[in-house]
Design a protein around this nucleic acid. Structure first.
Lengths: 121, 121
DNA sequence: TAAATACTGAACCATATGGTTCAGTATAAT
DNA sequence: ATTATACTGAACCATATGGTTCAGTATTTA
């Protein structure tokens, strides 16, 4: 198991598991914002918001730059491509299994039809 | 911190934030498995694996059924459609911002060209 | 009937998480 | 030169998480 990738996924899914952080991502999609802006918007202390931003930054989902007193936050380089791909892969596995079930049912149905025909003869 | 308002998203992204649980999902994509099967595969106690399965079940990603002594786990009904959609929406927001940046650059480029033409006159 | 198997729940442990307050530092505004 | 603003870091708190062991219960199997 490649630890690097594992921890990256861990970090990004963990970052997304909090409603406030998802909200921050959406917000930053609309406009860049300072820590103060975000803290006010989400009714939280500066320190609290700083922590959330750090988590998002750690996961590569947000980047920040401090100019003077103000730290401005914006959407980061990472666009969750790999996470989307993982989910897509999971959904394909699921579909594969579902299709397998379908074909079993199909088979049973065919068998029943055949039995029906045999009976009728 | 009582999490009385824990959303579906919180639960499913949190479920995905652990490498073992992602592994279990992949495994169950290949074949149904008992708690014992999974515990062995992931080198963990039965009790530990039971907890992971419970988390996945809580998030609707896995369903289980106990027949006799054996609890069989399989992929659940939920296929992370909404989670995939959320990520897709985030990526569109990101793209929108990126495109905005592009058009600023485009504008600057045009301006430079114009300046160039002016200079050359 | 006795022994092995498969799970389950309670209790415990260490660390992580999401929040706070408080006491700073650096920068901007007056 | 003061004062207000914006952030930062340390310390603290309550609960969550990821794991364990131990002591069961229920179900097969011999």
């Amino acid at each position: 198991m490649v630890q690097y990738n594992q921890t990256r996924f861990d970090a990004s899914f963990a970052a997304l598991s909090d409603a406030t952080r998802r909200g921050v991502l959406v917000q930053l999609g609309l406009a860049d914002a300072s820590i103060t802006d975000l803290a006010q918007k989400f009714h939280m202390t500066l320190t609290g918001m700083k922590k959330h931003v750090s988590v998002l930054e750690q996961a590569g989902l947000v980047t920040t730059e401090k100019v003077g007193r103000v730290r401005t936050c914006k959407l980061g380089q990472r666009r969750l491509e790999e996470e989307a791909a993982w989910i897509e892969n999971y959904r394909q596995l699921w579909s594969a299994r579902f299709d397998a079930l379908d074909s079993v049912i199909e088979e049973l149905t065919q068998k029943e039809k055949a039995d029906g025909r045999r009976k009728r003869k």
